[in-house]
Every structure is written in C-alpha cells, then in structure tokens.
Amino acid sequence: MPFFAIAFPVFDPVAVAVGPFEIRWYALAYIAGILLGWLYARMLLQRERLWGGPAPITPVQFDDFILWVTIGIILGGRTGYVLFYNLDFFIANPSEIFVLWKGGMSFHGGFMGCVVAVFLFGWKRNISVASLGDITCAVGPIGLFLGRIANFINGELWGRPADSTVPWAMVFPNAGPLPRHPSQLYEAGLEGLALFLILALMIRAGALKRPGLIIGAFLTFYGLGRITGEFFREPDPQLGFRWGGMTMGMLLSVPMVIAGIVVMLAARRRASTPPQPAGAKPGEAVK
C-alpha cells in the first residue's frame, strides 16, 4: 500500500439491530433528511418577511405534503435507478426491482418523483406549485448531504484512483488496492453543504418572493456540483464511461443546468409581488 493512502475506517452498515430487525445507516439518512427538512421548511414558512407577506403554503399543508414527497422520492429514485443505471439486470431479474434494502436509488429519478408530487399536491390543494417547489428544493440539500455520508459509511460509490498529490486518498473495501478519492465526501460538500448555503443566502436576500427562483437555482447548482463530483467518482461498473468520457451522472445533470438557468431567468423577470394566501383563488386580493 502506498505510504500516502489512508485505510478506510470500516463502518458497520447496520446502525441498530434487534434480533432479525435491522436499521441501516442508509435508511436512517433518508429518515433524518425528511425530518430535518420538514423542520427547516416549517421555520421558513413561519417567517413572513422571507415571502413579503403570509407564505402561500401553511405549515399544516406542508405536513400533509411530507407523505406525498416521501413516496415520490422512493418511487422515483428506484425507477430512475432501474431505467438509467441497471436496466438489463432488472429486465432479467424483475423481482429484484422491489428489493430496496439492497440499495440502488437514483437522485435524478428521485427528483422527478418530487416534481410529480409537487404538481399533484399543488393542484389538489390549490396552492402555488412554484412556491411549493421552492420550499422543497430549499430543504433538499439536507437529505443529499446525509445520503452521501451514508454512501461513505457503506463504502460504496467510491472515487477514481488518486495520485500522490492527494494525501487523503483511501483504500476502499472491495475496490481493489489502489488509493481512491473519497468522492462521497466531495459530493456531500458540493451537493449538500455548498448547495444549502447558496440557497439559504438567496432566501435571505428575498428569493422566495419570486416563485421558481429557488427551483432554478437548485437545478443549476446541483447540476454543476454533480458534474464536478463525477470527475472524481468511479463510474458504475455496468455502465462505465459514456460519450466523450462523460458518465451517466454527468449526462443526466447537463439538462438540469440548462433547465435551471431558464427557470431562474424566467423567475427573475417575473415581478416580485406579495404571495397569495394558502388556498386563495388566482386573482383573489391579499387581505
């Protein structure tokens, strides 16, 4: 082993075990991400100055939305993984699609599941889809950060081989003897911490007064962060590198960046007006 390599601190992927019942760190990351995101969202909804008036969504409505978005994340994330990352395997083994505890979730699929949940819930409850999307995207980096930390604990989705200029390179279990970038931690920093801070600063500057602006920023900066992280992450073995040396993660993120810029420009051109109260009909005066 080269002198500069750090031995991976092997963690038990099972956080709690009681007899045959097990709770894994990955499951805890999802649960903690949803709970912390819910608390942060409620805090944002209760601060009228961030919205320029009463928020267009009540905390109670967002409480109800949590179930919808959780289902969207799980169904979308699994569907995205099946379609984008391992379709041939699941065609040959369709029963494995439902074996979620073995892992296999796609962020891009999970995001599309969130989009569907936002549209359906907003339409059903007659609330602003753009504002609901903004608040959902604002809390999203919390779950992304915890999810990447869980990837690191599991010793999965490791990075590409590193050279001697990377003193923090690690030798991961099941990844061969070469020291590799801890790309899960890079992505936790880019997609989690950095993205959260960017969106939080934008919210503090009044971004929620322009519905859709946080959605566009999330798409843009997540996409850029993911593309950057992919330069250090080992491609999935069943896919390898794609066109021009790009990875599947890069290919799925490029459209996000383009769409995010378009959404941000459209939101910036929209006049900043006080939000409609939750449940108000279009054109109804704010009282």
Rank of each mutant, 00 (worst) to 15 (best):
S106A: 12
R125D: 05
A194W: 11
A55E: 04
I23F: 02
I261M: 05
I261L: 14
I74V: 15
A150T: 04
E96C: 12
L219Q: 00
W68V: 06
M112A: 15
A150P: 03
E234F: 00
P282E: 13
A92V: 03
P277I: 07
L195P: 01
G113R: 01
V118W: 05
L35C: 14
T165Q: 14
M248R: 09
G143V: 00
G159E: 13
F8W: 02
G133R: 09
M112N: 12
G113T: 11
F218W: 14
R204Q: 14
Q276E: 13
T220W: 01
G72E: 00
K124S: 12
L201M: 11
P161T: 09
M246F: 14
N151K: 05
D64L: 08
F4N: 05
S272N: 00
G52P: 10
F145R: 10
S253Q: 02
I214H: 01
V115E: 02
F221S: 02
V139S: 04
L197T: 14
H108V: 01
A5F: 05
W25G: 06
R268C: 00
M202H: 07
F231S: 02
H181T: 00
V10Q: 15
F21W: 15
F62W: 07
F65D: 04
A200S: 15
F21S: 07
K281F: 08
T70M: 14
G103A: 03
I74F: 07
R24E: 05
F232Y: 15
F145V: 10
I34M: 11
F172A: 12
F241Q: 12
P211Y: 14
W243G: 13
I215D: 01
L87F: 15
L120N: 05
E48M: 05
S183A: 15
F84M: 11
K124M: 13
A5V: 13
G53V: 08
G225L: 05
V82F: 02
R42T: 08
V118N: 00
G147S: 12
Q61T: 03
I261S: 00
E187M: 08
G212I: 03
G240R: 03
A169Y: 07
L185V: 06
L224K: 13
E284M: 11
A29F: 09
P179W: 09
T70H: 11
I258L: 15
W68L: 06
L67P: 04
V262T: 03
A271R: 12
I34V: 11
A267Y: 03
P211Q: 04
E284H: 12
L75P: 02
R180I: 13
G122I: 00
R210K: 15
L39K: 15
G192S: 07
W51L: 14
W38Q: 04
L195F: 06
V129N: 10
L185S: 12
F172C: 12
F221M: 10
G279S: 09
M264V: 07
A271S: 12
I215R: 02
N126F: 07
I127L: 07
R148V: 13
F84R: 09
E191W: 04
A162D: 05
Q276K: 13
L28K: 00
L224Y: 07
F62E: 00
H108G: 01
A188L: 07
T70C: 11
G249L: 10
G223K: 02
S183F: 07
G147Y: 10
P179K: 06
Y40M: 13
R125F: 08
M170F: 05
F89D: 08
G245C: 11
E187K: 10
A92D: 14
P211L: 04
